[in-house]
């Protein structure tokens, strides 16, 4: 399985699991790095530290943490998956034209209510 440490710059991945120990594990979970979250690797330093995007935040992380976070490639089904909105910068592939559209279409989507339990 691939880890975040071996990931490629500019590519998106889905977090599968982490084998980190407490307290670092909890720290990362609080930052939203949980199973099924999409991340986008941005950069890598000479010492193996990495920068990646998660939930709209750029995080820099040492390689000794990154090597315990297992990721997989993004598949087509991920976009339809329940966790679709994890996709960071989902719309930035199309870049400018999105900005032009400036759509307010989502406004009239009626909320699914806030009291929904999981499973």
């Amino acid at each position: 399985m691939m880890t975040l440490k071996d990931s490629q710059n500019g590519k998106k991945y889905i977090i599968e699991k982490s084998t980190l120990k407490q307290p670092v594990k909890q720290r990362l979970e609080a930052l939203g790095l949980i199973e099924g979250t999409m991340v986008r690797k941005i950069n890598e330093a000479l010492d193996g530290s990495i920068i990646f995007m998660v939930r709209g935040t750029r995080l820099a992380m040492g390689k000794e943490i990154a090597k315990f976070i297992f990721v997989r490639d993004v598949t087509a089904s991920d976009t339809k998956h329940k966790k679709r909105s994890h996709v960071i910068g989902l719309k930035d592939n199309s870049g400018k034209n999105l900005r032009d559209s400036n759509g307010i279409g989502h406004r009239d989507v009626i909320g699914i209510g806030r009291k929904i339990g999981v499973e």
Binding site: K83, K91, R99, H106, R114
Partner: peptide
């Protein structure tokens, strides 16, 4: 669960998402 809820919120509230 909290992050699931946040995703629901973001989905409904954020228009023209462009976080980067």
């Amino acid at each position: 669960r909290k992050y699931d809820f946040i995703e629901e919120v973001i989905e409904e509230v954020l228009v023209n998402r462009q976080e980067r």
